[in-house]
Amino acid sequence: MPLLDRNGTKIDAWTRSEGPAIGNLSQALVPWEALAEALPQKTRDQRIGVIVPNTVRIAELKLVLRQLSLVAVAFPAYSDGRGFSLAKHIRNHGFTGTLRASGPLIADQFAYALSCGFDEIELPDTLAARQPVEQWLKARDLISHGYQRGYGDSRNILDQRRAARAADQVRAS
């Protein structure tokens, strides 16, 4: 399935495994249900990622976050926004690995997903065909800044105003 990040199309280096068996895959992506069994098999130079449903409890997920290199949050439909809050939870719990949104998101959600802490989007083929990557890159930049603080945009409007005020004060003093 096509994968893109904020710069465009990306090669997917991860291999999905149906169950807990990760063999000697260097980057194994396992389902949430299989994670508990898969983790003990991990060797030192293997990396493990997990695909979680958007209903997963952060209280449970946070216990394993440190052992994971990638968390893929499933979006069952573009209209189901739980994944955005889950991403915030995951980042707020200090996860610094790759955060992936997986499902039929639409180009108009790209900026939101990035702001909530996602690094990349994995799309179903049909959707990627209908909304090619150029549309995603264009949609990403249509709104240059948001009002919300704490959403990755250090140039959000409130902080820009604050910086302008500080500059005014320096000038005045």
Binding site: C116, Y147, Q148
Partner: peptide, 13 residues
């Protein structure tokens, strides 16, 4: 109004 406008997390409630 400003804070809720195009909120990245709360636009698909």
């Amino acid at each position: 109004r400003q804070w809720s406008s195009l909120h990245p997390e709360f636009s698909y409630l």
